[in-house]
């Protein structure tokens, strides 16, 4: 919505040249810090109120249960940083698990199925990126079509849930990394953490990463500055597609099944995690670390509700909605102040 009531005001009250900055606090960090504070408060509340909440395994289980979401949210972070959105991720998870399960059931070797499954989302993401860049179709609509396509294809393949009994898959699903005091994480967590670290490094240390921020900040300027806007944008959707596929593979490890209705509404969870993690929905500001915190917030809400016992699952949605509202308003305030 274009703000039609307040015309842009030219900046005034600026200091003379050479003077120090207008204000010191780095506004980019405020949302992430807010999320961190929120997380700490939630955790403390949990530890204080519930027996056993303080166990390390409780925290680790948040990771175990949300590893796939973490991977998907990382891809979503890239897309949102450029100012776009990807609605197809939930459907891609469904398509990936369905294809993987179907092929495994047909006796294909895991070594072939795994790369194929990862390729699905990547190719779909590439296609959506191309449509968005070359034909100037709104990301919302292009990825909505992608969502219909992926969900439709998976339903076409099989409407029912398909169990996965493949040895490799079972091994992966049961793989646990145990630590001295008996706590453990699953393979999914390890993969998710690797993805997170790599994604964060790429954003911070490579030209590709910085171009993503530049496009999100001002795509027209980025073009005039000679940056490869089109290539970066397509790459970002491709990456998000890949992450969704990888998320799908992790999900199939997690549930040992392929089902065309897996991941319903997961795109909303991913978007919510990214926004709560302090990434600006209009692009150009935010960190992968923030997204991780956002996913943890979502996971912790569920954990608290489980521990509480008499609270029901729908509180998750309501709380997430309230948090979304709070963070969106916070973003508005922060960006308005910066301008």
């Amino acid at each position: 919505m274009i703000d039609v009531t307040t015309p842009p005001t030219p900046q005034r009250n600026r200091p003379l040249l050479g003077a120090k900055r207008v204000y010191k606090a780095n506004t980019k960090h405020i949302p992430v810090l807010a999320t961190l504070v929120l997380l700490v408060v939630m955790y403390s509340v949990g530890v204080y109120n519930y027996d056993g909440f303080g166990d390390t395994q409780v925290v680790l289980n948040v990771f175990v249960d949300n590893a796939f979401l973490l991977v998907v949210a990382v891809g979503m972070t890239y897309v949102i940083l450029t100012g776009g959105i990807d609605l197809s991720v939930g459907a891609v998870i469904a398509l990936t698990t369905t294809v993987a399960a179907t092929l495994l059931e047909a006796g294909w070797p895991a070594g072939v199925v795994l790369p194929l499954a990862l390729l699905i989302g990547t190719v779909l993401g590439l296609g959506m990126g191309c449509v968005i860049h070359f034909f100037k179709v709104e990301p919302f609509i292009a990825t909505l079509a992608g969502m219909f396509l992926a969900r439709g294809l998976s339903l076409l393949i099989n409407r029912n849930s398909i169990p996965i009994t493949n040895d490799f898959w079972t091994q992966m699903a049961q793989k646990r990394f145990r630590f001295d005091d008996g706590v453990f994480i699953s393979l999914n967590v390890v993969i998710a953490v690797i993805v997170v670290v790599l994604a964060a490094l790429v954003l911070a240390w490579t030209r590709f990463g910085r171009n993503i921020y530049a496009i999100g900040g001002n795509a027209d300027s980025a073009l005039l500055m000679g940056l490869p806007v089109g290539r970066t944008r397509i790459a970002v959707y491709t990456f998000s597609g890949f992450c969704a596929s990888l998320g799908g593979v992790l999900y199939s490890f997690y549930t040992s099944s392929g089902y065309s209705l897996h991941g319903q509404g997961l795109e909303l969870d991913a978007i919510a995690a990214v926004v709560i993690g302090g990434v600006l929905l209009t692009g150009g500001s935010g960190y992968v670390l923030g997204t991780v915190l956002g996913v943890l917030v979502l996971g912790l809400i569920q954990t608290i509700i489980t521990f509480q016992g008499d609270l029901n699952s729908w509180w998750t949605r309501i709380v997430v909605g309230i948090l979304l509202f709070a963070f969106i308003v916070l973003q508005r305030l922060v960006t308005r102040k910066a301008k």
């Binding site: 910085r210 900040g217 300027s221 500055m225």
Partner: peptide, 18 residues
């Protein structure tokens, strides 16, 4: 000004040829 307001001053000078 055709720069990216969300990046640092240094980045704005060097982006694309860091």
């Amino acid at each position: 000004v055709n720069l990216c307001p969300n990046l640092s001053v240094a980045e704005n000078i060097f982006i694309g040829r860091e």
